[in-house]
Nucleic acid binder design. Structure first.
Lengths: 112, 112
DNA sequence: TCCTTTCATCGATGGATATCGATACAGAGG
DNA sequence: CCTCTGTATCGATATCCATCGATGAAAGGA
C-alpha cells in the first residue's frame, strides 16, 4: 500500500488516473456473479447445449453428462439464480432454456 | 441416474437428444477457465479499467482498489494466465493491457 | 390409495480460492 | 557495493464450491 501518489514528473512516466468514472462495486459484483455461473465446465456445456437445442429437460442433461441428478440440478439452480437460464414445469418434467437477454449484459465489461 | 430412456411416445413429449455435436470437454474446460478468471469483482473491475485506460501499472491499481499489493498481483496473474491481459516491463514498472483477441473467444458459447 | 417417475433440497466432505503478512526479486540511483 | 522502490512469490488461514447419497416434493398412472 503506497500512501503517496508519485510525483508529477513520475506520474507522466508511470500512468495517471484517467478521468473516466470507475465501474461501481455493485455492478462489478453483479457481473462477477454472472461470470462465476459460467466458471464451471459442466455449466458451460449446459449453456452451449441450450444454445443449440433451445429447450431441454433435466433428464436429458443427466443422460448427456456423466454426473448425478442432484449435481445437474445444482448447476441448473446456479445458472437460474444468475439469470442465464429460465425454467418452466410441464407436468412431470422441468424444461430449461436460455434467458433471452442474458448474453447482452456481459458485453459491456470490455467496452469503454 | 436413469438407466432406461423414456418410451418413444414419451420421448416426443419430453425432449429428444439433438443430432448436433456436443461441446467437447476440453473446449468447455478452457472456456470455463476464462470465465473463472472473470468470476471475481476485483478482476472484473480491473478488466473494465483496462478497457477504459488501455494501459495501467500495478501501482495505480493498488491505489484504485483498496486491496494489498500482493492481492492485486495475484489477481493480475490469474488474468494473465487466462490470456485476458498482457504484461510488459518498462524499467521498474509493470504495465498491463487487455489481450486484443481475448473477448472474441468468449462469444461462441452462446451461438449455435 | 399406492407406486413410479422426475426433479429439488439437505448434509457431509474433499478440494479450490481470496486475502494477508513476510519475503524474495529486479531495476534505478547513489 | 548498498539502498530504495515497484512487483512477484510464498505460506497460512478462513471461506467457498463441486460432488455425492439420502431424502423430500409433486405429478401421473394403475
Amino acid at each position: 500500500m503506497n500512501a503517496l501518489k508519485p510525483l508529477p514528473v513520475l506520474q507522466s512516466i508511470c500512468c495517471g488516473d484517467s478521468g473516466n468514472p470507475p465501474l461501481p462495486r455493485a455492478a462489478a459484483e453483479r457481473l462477477a456473479e454472472t461470470f462465476k455461473a459460467l466458471s464451471d465446465p459442466t455449466r458451460v456445456a449446459i449453456v452451449n447445449r441450450l444454445a443449440r437445442v433451445a429447450e431441454t429437460c433435466v433428464c436429458d442433461l443427466t443422460a448427456a453428462f456423466e454426473l448425478s441428478q442432484p449435481t445437474i440440478s445444482h448447476h441448473l439452480r446456479i445458472l437460474r439464480d444468475a439469470g442465464l437460464v429460465e425454467s418452466e414445469r410441464h407436468g412431470t418434467w422441468a424444461y430449461y432454456r436460455l434467458a433471452p437477454d442474458a448474453i447482452e449484459r456481459l458485453r459491456g465489461v470490455f467496452e469503454p
